[in-house]
Design a protein around this nucleic acid. Structure first.
Lengths: 192, 192
DNA sequence: CGTCCGCTTGACTCAGATCAAACTTGGTGG
DNA sequence: CCACCAAGTTTGATCTGAGTCAAGCGGACG
């Protein structure tokens, strides 16, 4: 559910969209449109790296905003792709900017969103600095980053998927992780 | 220089501080105070990692704000330490929150600061995902992250300092980087 | 003049990337 | 209902490159 004050935005400033798994929402260098809110599903923000690979710089999940940079900059600085069927709302940029003028609680709520995302980004930076694959994996899971398939989780935490699988089975062997099913893991209660 | 609208904050809501190189400004889990602006010098935000090391999660330089989370959360989530003699201004939290109510251009400017920092954090996440030390080093330099001694630069980009030195000399050998002096490097014009 | 800190290079080790291959599952279409 | 295919999962073997330990150098500063 959209929380206040975002739930009070008039319909004419919102576009409700549905996109399918694998669809791109926008590309790097596209002119920016509005800011997005995810009703259900998930969107990854991706950038091309110099070494020809792809890096997931953010995974926006149900109940969160993304593309906040579009408020202030003219072009997207990454690609956005749905990792599952996704329903979202696009809020008009000009309307949002106007809200900054007139609606203090709106500004504050949005600013708070931004600081939260900033903290999350720094948390991930901290995780990426952990050298040992199994430790990095465990901390990342504790941080709630594992909510998708293992391959993109591996990309999120900067490991090859093989290294991730090995890290996972090692953690299971050390009883630091529970294997629920094929490709599904969960933290034991002692580590929750 | 402080830019509008921050230069108009009344003196009674600002504390002017001077701290020396190596001094800590605050510690992780300390109750949060105000938000800081750096007049001159530099502050690194540091967290302890699970593997016993330290990671620099942000380097705030002259002309920027930091500790933005303190606006909305009760405790600092990292340490802040001066890497050189530093002059800063601490803005009263309650005053800033009050500005959100009354001063739209202030809210917007601050929100824009936040989105910029967010983009920078994601840029660094992208850099940390680069596997090859020399490539990571080059991209980090291009991103303007090298403005301090090499040891803390190494910590910033998640390399051991030895690996960084080797990466640097390799880049120099490939003419992708110029060695100006002992421990001082610069991009060639072709890569600026 | 000695000490400390940052810089630099060498040798060795090992963890994770890479390549390769098998297997499991779910879905699609004949 | 079965054959087939694609995507994800898993394990094995090899190799590369970054971490680590160690040692020497240079400059700054008291």
């Amino acid at each position: 559910m959209l929380t206040a004050p975002f739930d009070q935005i008039p319909q004419q400033y919102c576009r409700h969209l549905e996109i399918n798994k694998g669809d791109k929402l926008f590309h790097q260098d596209n002119p920016t449109g509005g800011m997005f809110y995810i009703k259900s599903g998930a969107i990854v923000l991706i950038r091309n790296t110099v070494d020809g690979g792809l890096i997931i710089i953010h995974r926006a999940t149900s109940g969160t905003f993304f593309a906040e940079a579009s408020l202030f900059s003219a072009r997207y600085h990454c690609h956005a792709q749905a990792t599952m069927d996704t329903k979202l709302i696009e809020f008009d940029r000009s309307y949002l900017l106007q809200q900054f003028e007139n609606n203090p609680s709106f500004s504050m709520a949005l600013a708070q969103q931004f600081t939260r995302q900033l903290q999350q980004a720094r948390k991930i930076r901290e995780i990426l600095a952990i050298k040992k694959a199994s430790e990095r994996t465990l901390v990342a899971i504790q941080a709630g980053l594992l909510d998708t398939n293992l391959i993109s989780f591996a990309a999120t935490i900067g490991l090859s998927h093989e290294a991730l699988y090995r890290a996972l089975s090692q953690l299971v062997k050390q009883h630091k992780l529970l294997k629920v099913a094929r490709g599904e893991y969960r933290l034991p209660h002692s580590l929750l």
